[in-house]
Amino acid sequence: MKKINIRFKVNGRQADLNIAPNKRLLDVLRDDLGLTGTKEGCDIGECGACTVVLNGRAVHSCLILAAQANGAEIITVEGLTQNGELHPLQKNFLEHGAVQCGFCIPGMLLSSYALLKENPHPREDDIKEAIAGNLCRCTGYKQIIQAVEAAANENNE
């Protein structure tokens, strides 16, 4: 299979890649760029563990070919932390006990991040809608909702 050249920005840094055209964005992030914070849980866009933000929208990186992301701006969980400071979402997830095993958390964070960018004053139902595609098998969801609410309040102060 002939490889193709693509370039996109991940967490503010330019990535120039020469990859097989059938690679998913998830594979490129994890295998080529070593960004293993993005997880794979189901392979068909049902669990949300692979969620990243692409041009401002939360997307399943397991359902997108890397080539489709050519020229895009991508944010992964590794890009939420700025200068060693946790993003308010990360900080509140930690403080509100929104984490157990943690495998779903990167996806949860990025779905929430995209929500707050679009809607800085989300109601509880908006938060539920935003993370309804992110499955958590151990925490339960209440603490996650509280963490997103708290982060929104902090952002708005």
């Binding site: 969980v77 946790l86 900080k91 930690l94 403080e95 006990g97 943690g102």
Partner: peptide
């Protein structure tokens, strides 16, 4: 006491290495 998880930072920052992430 309601102490926050000591592994919380690793897990929210994406730096936690699960077996799935071992390379």
């Amino acid at each position: 006491k309601p102490v926050s998880r000591v592994d919380g930072y690793d897990k929210v920052s994406g730096s936690a290495v699960f077996t799935f992430d071992v390379i």
